[in-house]
Design a binder for these strands. Structure first.
Lengths: 233, 233
DNA sequence: CGGCCCTTAGTGGTCGGACCACTCTCGTCG
DNA sequence: CGACGAGAGTGGTCCGACCACTAAGGGCCG
């Protein structure tokens, strides 16, 4: 009698669990190449189609990466790889949930900025300063936005917590900024944003974590409050 | 000449984007049923196999849910649905990244606990108290862990930010607690944990947000420090 | 007449096989 | 010795068949 049969769920679901288990147990290392689809399918006793679905699911989760003609590879499994999906949340969120996301961002961003104030290197601080200057030197919203994102990204990186940085990155996803940021800036918040960015930069330069935390919190809170007000319509 | 062809990426990838776009643009509402696989495939001009892979990917992301024999449905798109994948991150993280995750948890958990102190209802506070008592009334690690999780889950729910609660939930995933919590408690941290939980409960009962924040931060920090020390080996 | 059961159409789940597109290696040729 | 080209191997796509399950409808029985 065959000893194989865990009969719960779809075969694809089982395949997903088997592969993640192999990775979790260290049987597969980050960056390592998996067996071929055909072999994996045979090994688990399922069809190639079902195995492909399993692999597609893991690809979507950022656990695995398929390279056409070459093979399937485990990603580096770093925060950035796995948390890319976080952007999907922001993309599909509307209404009150956008406020919740901003609340999370406020908490994490202010913490990251405080950490950065304590740890940032002069080189990176200069980089932050560059984005600040570039932001103030143009009127093109697209360019401003690009430097705005880079400004915060640089700070998050300086905080030294890649996981936190990856989450914050997800909270600035394309749709999110299109839906929130654009509306916010259209109401003439440029000047305010500039002041707040300057305050953050000042706190970083002064290596003052608490000032940095407060400045970042205020910065996000401004958007948060604007959005709250807008949702009341 | 056909006007269809965006020739970038795999057809499956395009299908994923098309479907998420339909949801994002409100063409598909949360909970609504999608067309059948066969029809979706025909509509996008791809094979059913490829469409199934797209749907499987979206299922993994918690965007969509397939019910055998019935159809494919958009999930409610609430934080819990979309952030279930967050557990995968915790599951596959090792070494230094576990510390980063705890750092994120400390930040969010302390904030959530502070919010809860201001907002918690008497009923829910009683519930929290129950889990605290249950935790202290047994020596079975499994039972303790279950009430420990419920304790924090109840608090997170009381904070009123479902997104935050969902992230915290992911940070307590099965593997995570097996890998970290177990080792921590084995070193006789029970007494300490009890004291910290009691302090959190006291702060909640006193409706003192700042005390609650500090107590929660201390609580997580204890685990964090233990793990840091352990990683030095 | 009302309620239960069974049929049945329709859905997602699985399978196998065929072929295409791409990558990488290795042996050949200049 | 180097460029390059053929071939084997890989993921990507498609097709068509069948299975497992759901839900709704119609007919039977009480």
């Amino acid at each position: 009698m065959e000893e194989t049969a865990p009969r719960k769920g779809t075969v694809t679901q089982r395949a997903i669990e088997r592969i993640t288990a192999m990775i979790r147990e260290g049987e597969l290392e980050p960056g390592e190449r998996l067996p071929t689809e055909r072999e994996l399918a045979a090994r688990l006793g399922i069809s190639r189609s079902s195995m492909r679905e399993a692999i597609r699911a893991l690809t979507a989760l950022g656990v695995v990466e398929a390279r056409h003609g070459s093979g399937i590879y485990v990603t580096r499994l770093e925060a950035g790889d796995l948390l890319e999906t976080f952007g999907v949340v922001a993309d599909l969120s509307r209404g009150p949930r956008l406020v919740e996301l901003l609340e999370v961002r406020r908490v994490l961003e202010s913490t990251a900025t405080a950490l950065a104030a304590a740890r940032i290197t002069p080189e990176r601080l200069a980089e932050v300063g560059k984005h600040l200057a570039a932001m103030n030197a143009t009127d093109d919203p697209e360019e401003i936005l690009a430097h705005d994102l880079a400004f915060h990204r640089e700070i998050a990186a300086a905080a030294g917590n890649a996981t936190m940085a990856a989450i914050l990155e997800g909270l600035s996803s394309r749709t999110f900024r299109a839906r929130v940021w654009r509306g916010y800036q259209e109401e003439g918040a440029f000047a305010r944003t500039r002041r707040e960015h300057a305050a953050i930069h000042r706190a970083l330069a002064a290596r003052d974590p608490e000032a940095a935390r407060a400045a970042a919190a205020t910065h996000v809170d401004a958007v948060e409050e604007w959005l709250r007000g807008r949702l009341r319509d």
